[in-house]
């Protein structure tokens, strides 16, 4: 009886949602071209970036990107808070460590020589690639966020691969880089206010060949911020790993 009622409810919900979604999904209106044409004409001169997506992402709609970075910051803060709580709650699980001290590391048992060699050799290469994606976001596909994620995975590789803790995989250092880059990001975003160009305005005069530097700068900061925060989260997750 309860089960039928449940299925009935689910079917009702799906039916309503279908009815509400279908007209929008099946609309046959042609796609608008006005924004595309405007961007084709002006994006390069407005922001200096060849990659139009970058010029929207960090130029015209940089406010969205700021919001997105904040969402990332908040959700990672929340996840870390829950992780730390989990660590505190289970006393018997001493293996939970966020500092990744080698002797405490629960992953030690599962590490193999092969993984160490591959990960530690691959790490620097991936790191380099991450910075490439970050720095060339304005002319090729990629950008701060994507590069940051690749940097994060490189850091995770390094953390997996090296026996001892290096500066790059130390969560305190990473956390410091994260907060520093967040502060710099907000300061850069606000800097336009003092240059009479408004919030998130490009303080460098638009139209000049230098104006693209603003986007490069934003790419680097966002990349560092995203990379370090995701790396901190992943390392914390690995530190707390213990299989069943």
């Amino acid at each position: 009886m309860k089960r039928t009622w449940f299925i009935f409810k689910v079917i009702f919900i799906l039916l309503v949602v279908t009815l509400a979604m279908l007209p929008v999904i099946l609309s046959s209106h042609p796609w608008p071209v006005a924004s595309r044409d405007y961007l084709y004409e002006n994006a390069l001169s407005d922001t200096g970036a060849v990659n139009t997506v970058s010029s929207i992402y960090l130029g015209y709609r940089a406010m969205d990107t700021l919001g997105e970075t904040l969402v990332l910051l908040v959700s990672i803060t929340g996840t870390m808070g829950i992780l730390i709580n989990l660590g505190r709650e289970s006393e018997e699980e001493e293996a939970v460590s966020f500092s990744l001290a080698p002797e405490k590391r629960a992953t030690n048992a599962q590490r193999t020589h092969l993984l160490e060699v591959v990960a530690s050799k691959l790490g620097p290469v991936v790191l380099l690639f991450g910075f490439y994606v970050m720095l060339y976001g304005h002319i090729s596909p990629g950008g701060g966020f994507q590069g940051g994620v690749i940097v994060a995975s490189a850091i995770v590789f390094l953390a997996l691969g090296t026996e001892t803790q290096s500066k790059l995989t130390n969560t305190t250092v990473l956390g410091r880089i994260e907060t520093l880059s967040f502060l710099v990001l907000i300061i850069v975003a606000t800097s336009g206010v003092f240059f009479e160009r408004g919030f998130f305005g490009n303080p460098i005069k638009s139209g000049s060949s230098l104006s693209v530097n603003f986007i490069i700068l934003l790419n680097i900061i966002i990349g560092l911020k995203v990379g370090t925060s995701i790396a901190v989260m992943c390392i914390a997750m690995m530190g707390g790993r213990h299989g069943h």
Binding site: V53, V149, S153, R241, H244
Partner: peptide
């Protein structure tokens, strides 16, 4: 751009987090 993001995020981070949660 979206492809790179989707590959990095969807196949990278999400998978790590999911595997962590399942473990």
């Amino acid at each position: 751009d979206v492809a790179i993001t989707e590959a990095a995020v969807g196949a990278g981070i999400s998978t790590i987090i999911f595997v962590w949660a399942i473990r």
